[in-house]
Each structure stands twice: as C-alpha cells, then as structure tokens.
Design a protein around this nucleic acid. Structure first.
Lengths: 289, 289
DNA sequence: CGAATAGTGTCTATCAGACAATATAAT
DNA sequence: ATTATATTGTCTGATAGACACTATTCG
C-alpha cells in the first residue's frame, strides 16, 4: 500500500526517519499506527520470510493394567523401517494445524486402540528438543502420559510398525524393565540401556515418565485411572510397587489404606476368590496439574 | 536410483507387489533393505513434502528478588507493536535450529539481562499449543521458569518493546497481582484478568507458573535461587508468602525452619540492623525434575 | 536498660510405619 | 476346621503447628 503524507507525519512523530525504506515504514505503520485488524490483514497478505521451522510431534507413554496377569502394560511399536529399524519405540505422531497437543495425543490413542479419551486421561509430560534427536531433521516432541482404564485390543496399524503391549516395571535397583510379548527385554538404568534397542530419545522419555508418576503417587495419582472405576486396595499396592520398585510383600496394605484414603472413595466390594471380599474404590476427582 | 533385480526380489520377499510405483518401491527399499546410513543419505537427498510446520518459541517467566524493597520481581515487556499493542507480555523468542529450548531460554535471558545462567537456574514449565494462541499464525511455545540470583539491570532492547521488572505476588484470595513500575496493575484470578491487558495466553502461563512453584516449595524449592547464596530464614518466609498468599505475619519462622531445614545448609550470619543477627543459608543441591 | 529482631525450646495433636488381631469366604 | 485373603485396630516414633522463652544488637 501507499503511505499517505499524514501517515508519514505520524511515523515521524513516533521517531522514525522518513528516509527509511518503504517496506520498513509500511511495517512500522501497520505495527504501530493501524488497528490490530488492519495489522493482521496486512500480516497475512505479505509473503512471510521463510525461517526454518521444526516438525512437531507428540510421543505417548500409554499405560494400562492387565487384571488377569496383575501386570502393568505400556504400548510400544517395533519399527520395521529406518531410522531405528528393529528398535522399540513409543507411539506418537505429528501435531496438525488447528489441533493442540492434547488433541493430537487423544487422536493417536484412538487410532491405535479405538478408545475415545478425555483430557482427564492424559497428562503432558515434557518437551524434548535436543538437536538431532531425530536423525532425519529438526523434530521437537512433547511427550504425554496416557492412562487407559482397560487393556484394549490394538487396532491393526500400517505395515511399517507392529504395535503391542509390553510389561513394564521398576525393580528395586531403580532399573526400568520392558518385556515384550516375545519375552525379549530392555532394561533402562540411570546410565544406560541394555537389551533391545530403543529408538530416538524414547528411553529418556520413559525414565521421566516413571519418575513423574512416582512423584505423584501420594498426591495426584492419575496413574490409578488404569484400574478403572472399581479397584481394590491390593491393586493400588500393585501399581505402587511397579513405580517405586518395592516388592508387593513389602507394601503394608493397612498403611497404604491410611495414606491413600483421602484420594479414594469406597464404592462397593468385589469377591476376589478365597478369603474376605475386597472393598472397591474409585479415584476422587481433583484439579489436575 | 535404479533398483536392481535383486532389490526387487528382496522387496517381493517382504511382501511388496513389484507392480507398485517406482517411487514407493524406492522408499521401501531404503526404509527396509538399505543400511541406516544409506537411508539417511537418501532421505536428505529427496525433496521432502512440505507439511505445514509451526513456529516454535519459548516464553520465559523470570523471577528475581529485590532485597531493598523485599519484593518478588518478574520480568515483563510492554508491547509497542501489533499484535497485542500496549499489552503486557512475557519475554521470549524463537527457538533456532541446532538449539534446544533450554539453550533458547538461557540465550534470551542473556540478551535481556546480560546474565549467563546454567541449567540449574531454569526449569521447563509447560508447552502451549492452543490453536490461534497467536493471531499471526501457528505458534507453539514452551514456557520456562527462570530464577535469577540477583536483580540485574536490564540491557536495553529494541524499540518495539520496553522491558522492566514488575512486582508480583499472590494474595490471600489466590489472585495474582502484577504491579508495573508506573504502579498500573494487573490482577489474574481463577476466572479472569483485570487491569492492564496481557498478551497471548501469558496470563495462563503466569498462573501455571505460580501453581508449579507453590507445589514445589517444600520439595524442590528452586525458587529460592532468587535469594542468592546467602539468605536468611526471614527471606525464605517472604518468598513463601508471595506464592502461598499467606501474609508474612502468619508465617511462623520457627516452624518454617523445621520444615525447610532438610533443604538448606547454614553458611554464615548476617547483621540485618537492630536485633540479633540472622543466620544465613544456602539451598542444597538436589536432583532437578 | 528497653526496644527490636532473630533463634531455641516445649507442648500437643496428628500421622506414617510396624505389627497384631479380627472378619469373611472357599474347600 | 483350616487356609487364604482382606480389613481393622494398636502401639510408637516422628513431626507440623501453636506458642513461649532466650539471645543478640542498637540506641
């Protein structure tokens, strides 16, 4: 657009030398004298300089509980294509325009498992931006924790990946174990990763996930969502043991009841087999974050 | 490249119909039969499809402590250009390629204040990706908490913004107050923002920042870094009062000493004026995150 | 010495952890 | 009845919070 002499005078009042190039003066006019609507219209119309931008993805640490085997499960893929061919990886995907990362997380879970989640079932974990974390280029990723209230069957994905539930737990030496359906194992320690390789920085993400969940066990134990709407105190203990590395025998259910009672509400009982039936509980609502 | 007949046979073994287009077969060859090095070389050579990508920035909630006025300070800019002309905003900037967000955060602090920080002085807060959080387009931002051990003078920035320290605190009704040097005020409550307008979603970021710091006061009180290497128990109390909304008179220094002693180490004493001199403390090292 | 400020000590109610006792159900 | 499992109760040591007391410095 052509600046009027009044525009130029106004710009001079603001301290801009009218010797400046036309494009600079035009920018200043729209930034500082025009209305916000006019500015945005002008901004959209000009071709924007092409700064390099990152690809943006989410990585999802999905937890579920298998009542039959009393085990904690996490969803993994085995990569069948480069990069990181034959490595274990977390599920995830690209964030699309007009979508926030929460939406991306829930969409990806739906695509893998067919489950429609709410924001209460997911939790942002961390944003990973180490250069070269993806050998293909600049990719920044926000990781998520997802708590599924069941152990769903997985909807078959495309042929470049194989999706499956793996057993996961922390042992008493703070090593995180991941055991795939074929019994091959990965062990993540403080310093290294042994066994089946893990793609990208996903071992680090898993480590952060375990730490975060452990920190929130007595505070905002969203992890208990994996136990569904009716769970027993024993099951709470099992989940605790998976994240603290304490063996189940060393967890005193009597004390656990005292320390978690303010987070739970009794809602029935369930006969577990031999012995006195368990009371069941549900997780209280609390403000997330 | 031209696939050899051996390549085609190998692809057929993997279950790919050799009727597929040449480009698909080439991709499958590099993804699944070539080495990872060959794959990456091929990947870099082909022109990548131009998915839309977001701009990626960091927003920085910078805290400092002013010993003279015993007040908590936070760094703000007043925007002099659209969008959000005349609104208050957090400092921040674009993440550059070959830089992780921690580096961006520290670089931006250096540019504003001349201070070179370490990773111990900063903490990732949250990643904000609501569509249209920036009216100019798709911008995702990771927010940071930064704890400055002094109240530095601000290095003059460019003319589109004015940078200054503002008083900040939470009151007993959980409203966050931001008081600019000209005494104009912004009040962020659970439900709305009153007073001087705040740009983008920065009010939300500030709210999350206060909540996070309050949650970590008795656990990982990185916020105490703003008190430097020698601080008194009174000063710990002042910082607590700013984030909990408890008035200073209602904080029992005797009890505060008990509840924070495991986080601090005594390192000297300081005469504060009339009265018995204060012991001074420093913050213990602990594993971040 | 008195006022101001800061540190130390004491009492109590609460609670986490260890462990013992009781309740319920299957065989 | 015996065994397995779960819940309830008791004892104790630790500690957060309320409050009183002692210590140090200034004028």
């Amino acid at each position: 657009m052509e600046l009027t002499s009044k525009n130029l005078a106004d710009l001079k009042d603001l301290g801009f030398d009218t010797d400046l190039s036309n494009s600079v003066l035009e920018q200043k006019y729209y930034e500082m004298l025009a209305t916000e609507e006019e500015f945005l219209e002008w901004y959209a119309s000009k071709e924007s300089p092409n700064y390099e931008k990152p690809s943006f993805t989410i990585d999802n640490v999905i937890f579920a509980y298998d009542r039959d085997s009393k085990s904690l499960k996490s969803l993994f893929i085995k990569r069948k294509a480069h990069p990181f061919k034959d490595s274990l990886a977390l599920t995830g995907g690209f964030v699309e325009p007009q979508e926030n990362t929460d939406d991306t997380c829930m969409r990806e879970v739906f695509e893998e498992t067919g489950l429609k989640l709410t924001k209460d079932d997911i939790e942002q974990l961390y944003t990973h931006s180490t250069p070269n974390r993806d050998p293909r280029g600049w990719v920044i990723s926000t990781s998520y924790l997802t708590f599924l209230p069941d152990l769903p069957e997985i909807v078959a994905g495309d042929d470049a990946k194989e999706v499956f539930w793996s057993d996961v737990y922390k042992d008493s030496d703070d090593n995180i174990h991941i055991i795939q359906p074929d019994n091959s194992e990965t062990i993540i320690s403080e310093t290294d990763v042994r066994g089946v390789k893990i793609a990208y920085d996903h071992a680090e993400i898993i480590r952060i996930a375990f730490k975060r969940i452990e920190n929130k066990l007595f505070y905002h134990p969203n992890i208990l969502k994996i136990l569904g709407s009716y769970f027993t105190m024993q099951e709470v203990g099992i989940v605790h043991s998976k994240f603290t590395g304490t063996s189940l025998e060393n967890i005193d259910t009597s004390n656990l009841r005292k320390t978690t009672s303010h987070l739970l509400t009794e809602n029935g009982e369930r006969s577990v087999g031999v012995g006195r039936p368990s009371k069941t509980y549900q997780l209280n609502k609390f403000n997330n974050q």
